[in-house]
Design a protein around this nucleic acid. Structure first.
Length: 875
RNA sequence: GGGCUCGUAGCUCAGUUGGUUAGAGCGUUACGUUGACAUCGUAAAGGCCGCCCGUUCGAGUCGGGCCGGGCCCACCA
């Protein structure tokens, strides 16, 4: 024993020094692991947190899960890389800084100018990034900091520029005019996923429109109308289809064409709609189908343009009121519905009403064939990856969501009208466009003022962090890219399945022709105690650092891992963390007990060599350890982290601590077995609760448990198989002991009250030989002997405080009889059913007849046999 | 409107292809504990597994319907 352990585990005392030790060891970096060349790689890239704010519990859950996978694989001989980074989160960050500057000085970004404003952003980013990295370390995350990346650093800028050029040259990126979601406040386009729809009350205006009366909630767009559309099935308006009509408007008469289009709902309003191609998505689609011109009347500030006569310069809502009152004066309003409920589209960042606007933007075509993907489009290739299960989603149901979303994907608008972000490598001179690495030769070129959608750079995350494009020449990967790509697991929240995961797949397929990962593990959202989403506005967020300070990082990690299943939200509660803190302390004290007064020889014994089992309890506990190991391995392979932890938890507390340590106390034998058990459970627990296990390990080891390999396992299977059969014997003993304790504590000691004659032969001997030792522990037994009661079976007579107890077994005989009877009944039904289907008596003849003579083992064997027949029959 | 998901002990949740007596943590109650640990131990109480129908020898598990929560997508001019 190198260091005496304190009575309780104090996380704050150990965590920082241990983390420092890990980091200084260099083992977070797989290059330092001294592995044979053929060691398989295991890579996870950390989903880069937005640098807008400090981490919340959701991030902690992410870190706990990924660090679990990483540490587990590192301890199992993999070349394990966990690659850290942060995301510049263009729009979010810019908004954050704008708000900050405005509250501090009342200035807007335009007041500051682009250069000064960006400097403010860089300052902000440096601060928050430092906070985030600090929090990440506190969680114990074993990330390879030497490979730290940022979505907007120099390497990533190079990669992004290159990707843009490659896609442009492949004809995948193009510039085009589209109606886009425009936020007049952020002055930027928004992706469809960035638009939030909110139910709101509005007015629905029924306006007189030539021969029609039609309903609109936006009468001001009448100034941009170029058509009226009706459903082709609608008998009411057939006569007008194809005609050109002259309409009276508030700034004079104008002409519209009447078209028939399937997008029009016969049952809504009057069944006729006005078509404003420039300011409505649906109208734009209708216009495209019928070759109708558009007329832009709203500008980028959300104001009416100069072609709107006296309304020019008004915001749309002011113009709406003005136009409505003018129309009323002209008798053009039929009536108004005041209570109209509709969904208004709003900016997910600033909540402004979205204005659909036509605009020149850069797009990635998801439908254009890509030569090096066998002429598949990005969409087709990305769908195929999931359908062919080259990428597997956990839980599986998200495959469908991914698939459906991909199917309906439109071209991806990648340009954003904000300052902070990746600049677009395109230059303009008049009508000329140049796309290239640098500004072209010659006078008068101006670079595109827009920046790229933040998902463009984060979509490249799995390979831009591994040295692409330098590590990819002529289709051959080298360096980190060859070694660590594709990655094994992408672990992230299900809410960004479509935003991010889908884009990573497309980007990787385009750049490398391979999938970015094999598994996508989607964790749920951490909700507050009441089941509500945590958010800043509600003030119900929890700072993980507070929890770490109060309970330790291990307790926080364990509370996030246990009781959570993939894809399902889970509730956070402090009680949960407290319970895990108690467990961590339990493990600490188990170690304290094992390690105290231990001789050096035992202490030095290997965690890898199975010690000799002398007693029933030895065999039981070693068998238990090995079966625990088996279950944990299987659970880890299936991403069942909660099950893995549960299994270890149960073994450690309920078997090892509550029973085996008690036995060890009686036998006063703290030998190799205890050390073997301790070393192995510490190693197995380490990926879950790295700090406490390392702290204990360090108290008697020079090396780090972080790189201690899980003991070899296959050679011990025989032992395990042989000894699980003995498990029942030990359980029987446990029950016997409990029965005695109860009989005592209830102070109503009646001979054989609880237990009936099921103990015969071998088991009675077992009790006689083993029980005295165990029973003697805390019961104050006067004597134990074998006796024969009124019944003919052997019984154990135990005398406590001069009162006699006859212990015949620990299982309630009535219950046991009832169970066996039911079991037999069920079997008989099964037999009858099978016989009927097979048309013979074979099974009836073989059925167990006398339940009293039937042993459980035989029943079970018979049942298994019948089930196999049943399965065969069904197939 | 389309899709997904959940409903199991007082609370939070497990329950892997249908199969013995449906589990855990917390909480409650009773009892216990002088040396690993009160951040402890032993036990008890507590379940129409949302409801109905079906498939099956057998359903918490599979199918259909209903009730009730949550989420996602589309979108109304």
């Amino acid at each position: 024993m190198k260091n005496e352990l304190e009575k309780t585990y104090n996380p704050g005392f150990f965590e920082d020094t241990i983390y420092q030790k890990w980091e200084e060891s260099g083992f977070f970096n797989p290059d330092n692991l001294n592995l044979p060349n053929e060691a398989p790689s295991y890579t996870i890239v950390l989903p880069p947190p937005n640098i807008t704010a400090k981490l919340h519990l959701g991030h902690s859950a992410m870190l706990a899960i990924e660090d679990l996978l990483i540490r587990y694989h590192r301890q199992n001989g993999f070349r394990t890389l966990w690659l850290p980074g942060t995301d510049h989160a263009a729009i979010a960050t810019q908004n954050m800084v704008e708000k900050k500057i405005f509250s501090e000085s009342g200035q807007s970004r335009h007041d500051l100018g682009k250069e000064k404003f960006l400097n403010e952003v860089y300052k902000f980013v440096a601060e928050t990034q430092a906070t985030i990295l600090h929090q990440t370390r506190k969680m114990g995350a074993s990330l390879d900091w030497s490979r730290l990346a940022f979505t907007l650093d120099d390497s990533r800028q190079k990669a992004v520029k290159r990707m843009f050029l490659d896609m442009y040259r492949a004809g995948i990126i193009y510039r085009g005019e589209r109606v886009v979601n425009w936020c007049p406040r952020c002055h930027s386009t928004l992706a469809d996923d960035e638009v939030e729809h909110k139910e709101e009350k509005a007015k629905l205006y029924w306006i007189k429109y030539g021969p029609f009366i039609l309903a609109t909630s936006r009468p001001e767009t009448k100034l941009g109308d170029t058509a009226v559309a009706v459903n082709p099935q609608d008998p009411r308006y057939q006569e007008y289809v194809g005609q050109e009509l002259e309409i009276t408007g508030v700034i004079g008469k104008f002409k519209v064409k009447v078209v028939a289009d399937r997008a029009v709902d016969i049952n809504f309003g009057s069944g006729a709609i006005k078509v404003t191609p420039s300011h409505s998505f649906i109208d734009n689609e209708i216009a495209a189908r019928h070759n109708l011109p558009g007329k832009k009347i709203i500008d980028e500030d959300g104001k009416m343009m100069s072609n709107c006569g006296k309304y020019a310069g008004m915001t749309t809502s002011v113009a709406r009121d003005a136009i409505v009152s003018d129309m009323q004066a002209m008798g053009l309003i039929d009536h108004i519905d005041e209570e109209y409920i509709h969904n208004s589209a709003r900016c997910y960042r600033c909540d402004s009403v979205i204005e659909p606007l036509p605009s020149k933007q850069w797009f990635i075509s998801v439908d254009a064939p890509v030569a090096h993907l066998n002429e598949q489009s990005l969409k087709q290739a990305a769908i195929a990856a999931a359908d062919k299960q080259e990428i597997r989603f956990l839980p599986e149901r998200f495959t469908k969501r991914y698939h459906d979303w991909m199917e309906n994907l439109h071209d991806w608008c990648i340009s954003r009208q904000i300052w902070y972000g990746h600049s677009i490598p395109a230059w303009y001179r008049g009508e000329e466009i140049f796309v290239g690495e640098n500004m072209p030769e010659g006078e008068g070129w101006v670079q595109d003022q827009d920046t790229l959608d933040t998902w463009f750079s984060s979509g490249m995350w799995t390979f831009s962090t591994l040295g692409w494009p330098d590590n990819f020449q002529d289709g051959i990967k080298s360096g980190d890219l060859a070694r660590f790509h594709p990655t094994q697991v992408l672990e992230t929240g299900y809410e960004i399945l479509t935003l991010w995961v889908s884009r990573m797949v497309m980007m990787s397929l385009f750049a490398l022709g391979e999938n970015p990962f094999k598994h996508v593990y989607l964790h749920g959202t951490i909700l507050d105690k009441a089941g509500k989403k945590m958010s800043k506005s509600k003030g119900n967020g929890v700072d993980p650092l507070d929890m770490i300070n109060s309970y330790g990082a291990d307790a926080v990690r364990l509370s996030l891992l246990m009781g959570a299943t993939p894809g399902n939200d889970s509730r956070y509660s402090e009680e949960k963390i407290e319970a895990k803190r108690n467990f961590v302390n339990k493990l600490w004290n188990i170690s304290r007990f094992v390690l105290s007064d231990l001789d050096e020889t035992s202490l030095a014994s290997s965690a890898n060599i199975l010690p000799e089992a002398k007693t029933l309890a030895d065999r039981w506990i070693l068998g238990g350890l090995l079966s625990t190991r088996k279950t944990v391995d299987e659970a880890m392979a299936n991403f069942e982290f909660s099950l893995a932890a549960d299994t270890l938890y149960d073994f450690t507390w309920n078997k090892l601590a509550d029973w085996y340590l008690e036995v060890a106390k009686i036998e006063k034998d703290k030998g190799q077995i205890l050390v073997y058990l301790l070393k192995n459970i510490l190693i197995m627990w380490h990926p879950f609760i790295p700090y406490v296990t390392e702290a204990i390990w360090q108290s008697f080891n020079e090396s780090l448990i972080m790189v201690e390999q899980w003991s070899t396992w296959n050679d011990k299977l025989d032992f395990w198989v042989a000894n699980t059969a003995k498990e029942n014997d030990f359980i029987f003993l446990q029950e016997a002991i409990i029965a005695v304790r109860n009989a005592r504590s209830e102070n109503k000691i009646e001979p054989a009250r609880k237990v009936q004659a099921l103990v015969v032969g071998e088991r009675a001997n077992l009790l006689l030989t083993q029980a005295p030792l165990l029973l003697g522990l805390r019961t104050g037994i006067d004597s134990i002997s074998c006796d024969t009661k009124a019944s003919e079976e052997k019984a154990i007579k135990i005398v406590i405080d001069k009162t006699e107890i006859y212990l015949l077994g620990a299982v309630d005989a009535d219950k046991e009889q009832a169970r066996l009877f039911k079991e037999k009944e069920n079997l008989e039904k099964l037999i009858i059913s099978l016989s009927a289907r097979l048309g013979n008596q074979e099974f009836i003849d073989r059925a167990p007849t006398n339940i009293v003579q039937v042993e459980q083992e035989k029943l079970t064997r018979y049942r298994v046999e019948l089930e196999n027949i049943n399965i065969a029959l069904k197939a």
